[in-house]
Design a binder for these strands. Structure first.
Length: 712
RNA sequence: GGGCUCAUAGUCUAGCGGCUAUGACGCCACCUCGACAAGGUGGAGGUCCCCGGUUCGAAUCCGGGUGGGCCCACCA
């Protein structure tokens, strides 16, 4: 926060401060944040929407669309903050509940009283008409008549219009050209005169007569007082109503008239729907937001803003005839305020003086070009072609209607193609109560603080925890889960590496059933995870891998394979190699599957051990694990081992005994053949700590798959 | 007011026609098992928001409510 006002200095100076803030403070901070978050980018290449490169492309876009006849400039109402004295866009507004009064004031028709309710009596001098609903019987008699405006004593027509709500106030409404959105629609629809009662600095204009120069609030008060005195104000009803205020200063916004630039696209709604349908939406339902937005479009795209900082329009106007003079496309970017127009005289009238366009483009006019801006960072045209159109736009759902939509529009208008194939729409982190985080509510959690306190991996682990597109409430305690996962995978890897020191990557002559079991289960996880990632369902991958790692791999597999790894003399060398094989491949795959979600810990483990055995320098460029085959028979034997182990654990736990307590005898019944059981016997004895293990085959028709008896 | 979406243990979440409803945090009991007590084993805790309907069978599908979220519109 610089706490400076653009009004207090020349534009040059203000813009310079903006540049310096962006380049020296914000950009390094953002880049640092992205690196810490673990974003994998080429940080030598970046754009911001205000640097020369982006300005050039943005201005070129403006010129090209103008040449295609897709842009025009005309008078239009614009939202205006009288305090900041600037035009503002809709995104800069917010709703605020304010106390106000419905004032019943007296208009006169042929000497008779006509009562109209208004919250804004100060706009009376700008009154241009009075409306009632065409079906409202009460007011039919006024059709075609004139109403005399109180205090100001001029007459305005009384007309029917369906936008007048019979239920509101007295059911009859006054229209002041720049009162609100509806007032402006009326102005357009009935071709009413344009009257401005308020100037750009929020003061009453000379239209207001004796109230000229007063602030809006003072004028409102004075007019109410005067009407009371003259018995023109019948009553005041206090109401609460929502008004649009400028989010920075909380000032009620006004509407002003100004010349604005538009991109003409309202006639392309059908095409827009087709363009949207050609995108692959993840998740699918997000497309409706796009469709709904397109169907509801009512205006062309206004791209000009009356602000100081932004991409300038590459435009001058002839001082005499207002002819548009465009910049030379080869000399972009230009700032018309500083630079000279490319012509000596106006081609239309010959005038030699030009007026620079002072407005700047709305930020979305430039942000909508991000695919082109990014692609053109690389000079090689062949590579540019590879990059644009792009494969994916990742973004959140709140800006589908502007960032996503506008980008599609620009790409189509310029090149006739969609900017990307897929769009992945994520949800938002919310506060612990499911509310949107916002500075004004004071419920914002800074990711950097959480990364400092926990880690980027934990934060990412948490963020990957909800379904794509769903919002996710943030609670700090949820980051503990990620921390625990990191510790667990560190410890499990430490154990694995210890036993893999002498492993030469060879396949064992005979694969023990539990080793085949973990590999087969692993293959299932690889399959589902790969499918999930391909449709951007990262939360499914996260959950599958988490469960597989923690329960199948750590709780069961490691405990069972341990004995063979520690005691090659007792269990045989090849039994140990079989364990090493299962251990190596399952852990490596877990690390690879988890790498996109927890890039730091997985890379650390890869560097510590796997790098010298595998070809790739980093886990993040290593080949994605391939599924081999799922072995149902081996899985059945493995399941029986796991059953035997967990059933003995439960028995010990129920007796409050240590898990290392030895069992005198363990009887297991299952559906596998005795010969198959013999392959599993060794692992069961060691993992269950049973002195003797007996197997009995269950009848195929038996309801239970497994049974057991335990003697302590 | 409109669109989309969500509702599952104290909290967060998975499942989206058929197992005893998943996992995590928290809670309780027990356990120093040669990776890990930042752990292990087990346990308690749920009218799967409400009301109807379809179905042999609904947390899951359909209709109607209620509540949350985001976006849009309104705001005389």
């Amino acid at each position: 926060m610089k706490k400076i006002s653009a009004k207090a200095m020349p534009r040059d100076e203000f813009v310079k401060i903006c540049y310096e803030t962006v380049n020296k403070e914000l950009k390094p901070q953002y880049v640092n944040d992205m690196k810490r978050l673990g974003l994998s980018c080429d940080f030598n290449l970046f754009y911001d929407t205000i640097n020369e490169h982006s300005q050039r492309i943005s201005q070129r876009s403006f010129i090209e669309l103008y040449e295609k006849g897709l842009e025009y400039r005309k008078d239009a109402p614009t939202m205006w903050c009288p305090k900041c004295e600037t035009g503002i866009s809709q995104v800069e507004c917010e709703d605020k509940e304010l106390d106000s009064f419905f004032n019943d004031i007296v208009f006169k028709v042929d000497g008779e009283e006509l009562i109209i309710a208004t919250t804004r009596p100060e706009l009376l001098p700008a009154c241009v008409a009075v409306f009632y609903h065409p079906d409202d019987a009460r007011y039919q008699k006024y059709k075609g008549k004139m109403a005399k405006v109180p205090l100001f004593d001029f007459e305005v027509p009384i007309m029917p219009d369906p936008r007048a709500d019979p239920e509101k106030g007295t059911g009859i409404v006054m229209c002041c050209t720049f009162g609100d959105q509806t007032d402006m629609e009326w102005q357009k629809a009935h071709d009413l005169p344009i009257k401005l009662a308020i100037s750009t600095d929020g003061k009453m204009t000379k239209l207001a007569g004796k109230y000229e120069g007063m602030s809006i609030q003072t004028a409102r008060k004075m007019i109410i007082e005067d009407m009371k005195d003259q018995r023109l104000l019948l009553s005041q009803e206090p109401i609460k109503h929502a008004v649009n205020v400028h989010e920075r200063c909380g000032t009620e916004i006004e509407f002003m008239k100004a010349k604005q630039w538009f991109i003409s696209y309202l006639d392309k709604k059908e095409d827009m729907l087709k363009w949207g349908a050609e995108l692959n939406w993840y998740p699918k339902h997000m497309k409706s937001r796009y469709d709904h937005w397109v169907k509801g479009l009512a205006w062309d795209w206004m791209i000009s803003r009356q602000r100081f900082f932004g991409v300038p329009f590459p435009v001058w106007y002839c001082k005499e005839c207002d002819e548009v003079i465009l910049a030379d496309k080869k000399k972009l970017p230009v700032d018309p305020i500083k630079d000279k127009a490319p012509l000596a005289k106006c081609p239309k009238c010959g005038c030699t003086e030009f007026v620079p366009e002072k407005d700047v483009m709305d930020t979305w006019a430039t942000s909508s070009l991000t695919p082109q801006i990014a692609a053109e960072l690389i000079p090689d045209k062949a590579i540019q072609k590879k990059i644009y159109p792009m494969s994916l736009r990742p973004q959140a759902h709140d800006i589908i209607t502007f960032w996503l939509f506008n980008t599609v529009v620009k790409s189509r208008l310029h090149n006739g193609i969609n900017p990307w194939a897929d769009v992945m729409i994520a949800g938002h982190a919310q506060d612990p109560h499911g509310k949107k985080m916002s500075k004004s509510k004071g419920n914002v959690v800074e990711p950097q603080v959480m990364i400092d306190k926990y880690s980027a991996d934990s934060l990412r682990f948490w963020a990957a925890g909800s379904k794509l597109g769903d919002d996710l409430p943030f609670q700090e305690k949820d980051l503990v889960t990620g921390e625990k996962f990191i510790t667990k995978i560190w410890n499990a890897s430490k154990f694995a590496f210890m036993h893999l020191e002498d492993y030469d990557l060879k396949k064992p002559k005979h694969l023990e059933p539990i080793d085949g079991w973990i590999i087969s289960k692993l293959n299932k996880i690889i399959k589902t995870s790969t499918e999930a990632f391909n449709s951007y369902e990262y939360s499914k991958t996260k959950q599958d891998v988490e469960n597989f790692f923690w329960h199948d791999f750590c709780d069961n597999y490691l405990e069972i394979v341990k004995d063979r790894l520690y005691n090659p003399d007792l269990r045989g060398k090849d039994a140990r190699i079989s364990g090493q094989y299962g251990l190596y491949h399952s852990l490596l795959s877990i690390i690879k599957l988890m790498a996109p979600i927890m890039p730091y810990i997985t890379e650390e483990l890869y560097q510590l051990f796997f790098k010298e055995k595998e070809k790739a320098e980093s886990v993040h460029i290593a080949s994605w694990p391939k599924e081999v085959k799922i072995d149902q028979e081996t899985e059945k034997i493995g399941d029986l081992i796991v059953y035997a182990v967990s059933t003995s654990r439960r028995a010990k736990s129920e007796k409050n005994l240590s898990l290392k307590t030895e069992l005198k005898a363990l009887v297991i019944r299952g559906k596998i053949e005795l010969a198959e059981f013999e392959l599993a016997r060794g692992d069961i004895i060691s993992a269950a700590r049973a002195l003797s293990v007996e197997y009995q085959k269950l009848d195929e028709k038996s309801e239970a798959d497994f049974e057991h008896e335990i003697v302590f």
